[in-house]
Simulated scan of single mutants.
Amino acid sequence: MIDYQQYLSKTAIELEPSGIRKFFDLAASMEGVISLGVGEPDFITPWNIREHAIDALQDGFTSYTANAGLLELRQEISRYLTRRFHVDYKPENQVIVTVGASQSLDLAFRAILNPGDEVLIVEPAFVSYTALVTMAGGVPIQIATKAENGFKVTPEQIEEAITERTKAILLCSPNNPTGTALSKGELTEIARVVEKHDLLVVSDEIYAELTYDQDFTSFASIPGMYERTILINGFSKGFAMTGWRLGFLAAPKEMISLMVKIYQYTTMCAPHMLQRGALEALRNSSDHVEKMRQNYWRRRNFTVQSLNKIGLNCHTPGGAFYVFPSIQRTGLTSEAFAQELLEQEKVAVVPGSAFGSSGEGYIRCSYATSIEQLQEAMTRIGRFIDNFNN
């Protein structure tokens, strides 16, 4: 009998399984479940985008593209970033089209980290961040935020976490799972710390199109930060294109050239026909994006109001499509709460602990589902909470 443990990667063995997928897979095996778990738009990709990809397939665009992606698409991404977020990147050597924003993050960390380099991660945080830093040989250092501060990291917290081995800080605004969106002023304060300590910033801006109470500010647009920022974005959330797996990153050319080298030996390029669809997304889909954003805004307001009425304290998120209410009054751990809610009322949520230790005592609920489903989910959650009042 072969002992496979001796052949397997210790790094891979020690990675924690995704807490999001665990409850999603469990919910998928049950009938009648309302899922507020996986962060995926309930909208179908707009037809004009799908039609463009279909036409590309029929026209025979089935070959490889350049490693960095179609130049035409990189040019369109560059125009989009300038038009929407006031940052200018050269499409020839500062933009890469990737297989999802997750691969953009992977390329970024592989390109900048040496063994032992530390990356500051603001928690609660998306489940893949710590794993990606670890797999690239880095050391993730968590900075815990609190509900009473709207889950916003402060410059003082960042200062306290910096050591001589700190290489970069990873920011996600609007944030997954809390929905917290940082203002231009708050980002500017963080930028002062970044410059003072000569750090890089990996800025995950995948939810840039989904902000509700203030205009989105790209970290790269903050004075002095363009040269220090690796900008991560993509089509999954704002354009309802999750299954397309198309992302992009923009950065100084010195970093991009190294990322392209890594890309050559891993994925080669994103699918050709899907890149053609992405061209249409950037050129002719802003009206669709705005309609979806307005829908999410209405759902956010309903969900926050409903949860607070039920008795689960919930701050109003500034972006994305998540709320992060406290379940501490129940006395249950976040995992026990999610488990019992699923079993008793067939509502799937994600335990806050899946997003780091600072998420304990909270749950993540996605409002990327119909208002009718949200209304029924809130009724079921309310009934579940009533059991703790009697």
Rank of each mutant, 00 (worst) to 15 (best):
N149A: 15
N149K: 13
N149C: 09
K152F: 02
K152R: 15
K152M: 11
V153Y: 05
V153L: 06
V153F: 05
V153R: 01
T154E: 01
T154S: 15
T154A: 07
P155A: 02
E156C: 01
E156L: 09
E156T: 11
E156Q: 14
Q157L: 07
Q157C: 05
I158D: 00
E159M: 11
E160D: 12
A161C: 09
A161R: 04
A161W: 00
T163G: 12
T163F: 03
T163C: 08
E164H: 11
E164R: 10
E164G: 01
R165G: 03
R165F: 13
R165M: 06
R165W: 08
T166K: 00
K167W: 01
A168R: 02
I169P: 02
I169G: 02
C172S: 12
C172L: 11
C172D: 05
C172N: 13
S173R: 04
S173K: 00
S173F: 08
S173D: 00
P174E: 03
N175T: 04
N176V: 09
P177F: 03
P177W: 00
G179R: 01
A181V: 13
A181K: 03
L182E: 06
L182N: 06
G185T: 14
G185Y: 09
L187F: 11
T188M: 10
E189N: 14
I190F: 05
I190P: 08
I190Q: 04
I190Y: 01
A191I: 14
A191W: 15
A191H: 15
R192I: 14
R192A: 15
R192H: 14
V193E: 12
E195Q: 12
E195M: 08
E195K: 09
K196D: 12
L200H: 12
L200E: 09
L200I: 15
V201A: 09
V201R: 07
V202I: 15
V202C: 10
S203Y: 14
D204L: 07
D204P: 03
E205N: 12
E205Q: 13
I206N: 10
I206T: 15
I206G: 04
I206K: 01
A208G: 00
A208T: 07
E209C: 06
E209M: 08
L210T: 14
L210H: 07
L210F: 12
L210K: 01
T211D: 02
T211G: 04
T211M: 04
T211A: 05
Y212L: 03
Y212I: 05
Y212H: 13
Q214A: 14
D215W: 10
F216Y: 15
F216E: 06
F216Q: 05
T217F: 07
S218D: 14
F219D: 02
F219K: 04
S221R: 01
S221W: 00
S221E: 08
I222L: 03
G224W: 04
G224Y: 03
M225K: 06
M225V: 10
M225H: 00
M225Y: 02
Y226F: 13
E227N: 10
E227P: 00
R228E: 13
R228M: 08
T229V: 11
I230M: 10
